[in-house]
Design a binder for these strands. Structure first.
Length: 549
RNA sequence: GGCCCCAUCGUCUAGAGGCCUAGGACACCGGCUUUUCAAGCCGGCAACGCGGGUUCGAAUCCCGCUGGGGUCACCA
């Protein structure tokens, strides 16, 4: 608190949806900016055109906004520090590269990928670490230009200084990197585009970034960035490397996890003979070559294709991207609260925090060093709490968003009805629970599917006692007036007493008759929501279906 | 494998030498509530990786070991 204004950035590359790990990084940066009265900048690192995924920028921005992390400078909002797309800043990078070339801090090189790979392979065989062998003497600028004209794949490499580099990290302390470990890395690719290391350093300086909060997987990149900053005469920002977020099994949480789970289900289906490669390929909608590569675990599938396949296989891949959580019915405030506690703690046994409290309490000093496992159960518990505490109108808005992201059939209800359904489903862990519990009340009667287990255990047992009760109950329902939850509950209760039956012996058969399952809102609400006509129709249909299946 | 980072209940963590017979939350187990599923309420189990130091005193400081993770591209 009360620190001087910082300038921080979140810099995704547009290669897909926003990952939860990225979301936490964005959140921490945003918190720091807000509490210091500084600026949170969104910058798009789109220097690899081969990995660019159509529409991903729009999705990333939508998810950031969903999380409540609006940026002060960047796409759609502009700002004083030039384009926030690296693809539009090529001149900037070339200018800096020229400076390095001329000052002797960088040089041209033109080995082919094959030559480089051969060198790496050789190093591997000799069991030593590969390091790009700096030519001696260095090629002249003219020689580089000539090679370029001759059609060679000419890159610019940075000449690493001859000294050890110490990274001062607010979280990790001083991290010493030996000079021998650092190689002359590429800053300009042969296609003329900058590499990540170079673009980051140039842009962070250009945008006057003061603090860099990023994942710990970037720690080994930092000495490169510091060396570059020194050679260009730039200030080094404050670095803070965040602990890595891992799966419960200890592996790094990555988008590949989704592919893994779907691939496993696919292979199982093939083994069981319920699916073949051609069909699966058609379902996913990708071409055969792409599919074969995916099946062999060499690549990941684009998210739409993966979802189609997952749906067909009836598997739920783990939520990894922010959008996955959105479509699974999580509230943004629950997700961000949970994410905030992954690697950070406000102390004093505080856990549930409003956004304002987070802003107030956040500090880099209280970020931990140890990697954190992503415990879905705990997130679920947070979400349950947030759902329970949400005001009706807020829950309604959240559900509308969820319905859009998930395609929930309840999305077509009007506000009044949806509000009522939401109220009746209080106690939900996710918004998807509302679908599970009440969805069937809003489908056409003939679409009600009777679960064999439910029919057997509730309707058929004891010589069809459930059916018998329903037959006797029908006239009672016909005469009940008015058709409201309270009155219906009372009517069913007194019917049960009169029959000398437990309430459950009446309510459960009725529930199964109306929904095909043993799960629904309270029986009175279920009837009220359904209405008199459909209630009768469903009970009669249930009775007429007796023994049919 | 080289380099780097890390190490408190199953999980997220509090703990900055005595306040620790180690606190909270989730999960788990038991009970209550109950017309289903949830939710809710009450209670319980459960950790300082190991070995050396330093100190009157160590979860807290130092060293070693072990274990886990990250990273080694013309990807970001």
């Amino acid at each position: 608190m009360n620190r001087s204004p910082v300038r921080v950035r979140f810099a995704p590359s547009p290669t897909g949806y926003l990952h939860v790990g990225g979301a936490r990084t964005a959140l921490f940066n945003w918190l720091l900016a807000r509490q210091s009265g500084g600026a949170f900048i969104l910058r798009i690192e789109d220097t690899d055109r081969t990995r660019h995924v159509e529409d991903s920028l729009r999705k990333i921005m939508a998810d950031l906004r969903w999380l409540g992390l609006q940026w002060d400078e960047g796409p759609e909002v502009g700002g004083p520090y030039g384009s926030y797309f690296q693809s539009e800043c090529l001149a900037r990078y070339h200018h800096c590269a020229d400076r390095l070339l001329r000052s002797g801090n960088a040089y041209y090189a033109w080995e082919t990928p094959e030559e480089l790979n051969a060198l790496r392979e050789q190093a591997r065989r000799e069991k030593r670490a590969f390091k790009y062998p700096r030519p001696d003497p260095l090629p002249t600028i003219d020689a580089g230009l000539a090679a370029q004209r001759a059609g060679k794949p000419v890159v610019v490499r940075f000449k690493m200084p001859e000294s050890d580099i110490c990274v001062s990290d607010v979280i990790l302390g001083e991290v010493e990197m030996k000079r021998e470990e650092l190689e002359d890395f590429v800053i300009l690719k042969s296609d003329g585009w900058p590499t990540y290391h170079f673009a980051v350093v140039v842009d962070d300086h250009e945008m006057q970034i003061t603090h860099v909060l990023r994942g710990q997987e970037h720690l080994m990149n930092t000495p490169k960035h510091i060396a570059l900053q020194r050679a260009l005469g730039f200030d080094t920002p404050v670095y803070a490397h965040l602990p890595i977020i891992m799966n419960m099994d200890g592996s790094k949480m990555s988008k590949r996890d989704k592919d893994r789970s779907v691939r496993a289900a696919y292979q199982q289906a093939v083994k069981a003979g319920t699916l073949d490669e051609t069909t699966a390929c058609a379902i996913s909608g990708v071409d055969a070559g792409t599919f074969v590569e995916w099946r062999a675990a060499n690549t990941t599938l684009e998210s739409d294709a993966l979802r189609k396949l997952a749906d067909h296989l009836h598997v739920r891949p783990p939520e990894i991207d922010v959008h996955d959580f959105r479509a699974s019915g999580y509230l943004p405030e629950a997700l961000t609260n949970f994410l905030a506690l992954l690697g950070w703690s406000p102390g004093h046994d505080r856990e549930i925090l409003t956004r304002n409290e987070m802003v107030e309490l956040f500090s880099i000093e209280r970020i931990g060093k140890t990697s954190a496992r992503f415990d879905r159960e705990k997130l679920l518990a947070f979400n349950t709490q947030y759902c329970a505490a949400a005001a009706p109108q807020h829950l309604l808005a959240a559900f509308r968003d969820y319905a859009e992201a998930s395609g929930s059939p309840l999305g077509k209800l009007d506000d009044t009805m949806l509000l009522r359904v939401l109220e009746v489903c209080r106690g939900m862990r996710t918004l998807a629970d509302v679908d599970n519990k009440s969805g069937v009340l809003f489908v056409p009667d003939e679409q009600v599917r009777y679960e064999p287990d439910a029919v057997r255990k509730v309707l058929e047992k004891k010589d069809g006692q459930g059916y018998a009760i329903l037959e006797r109950l029908l006239p009672v329902l016909e005469s009940t007036e008015p058709w409201t939850a309270e009155v219906l509950d009372a009517a069913i209760k007194s019917f049960a007493e009169q029959q000398n039956a437990k309430l459950a012996d009446v309510a459960q058969p009725l529930r199964v008759a109306l929904t095909g399952r043993t799960i629904s809102p309270t029986i009175g609400e279920t009837l009220a929501l359904l209405g008199r006509g459909r209630t009768h129709a469903r009970v009669r249909r249930c009775l007429s279906l007796r023994g049919a299946a």
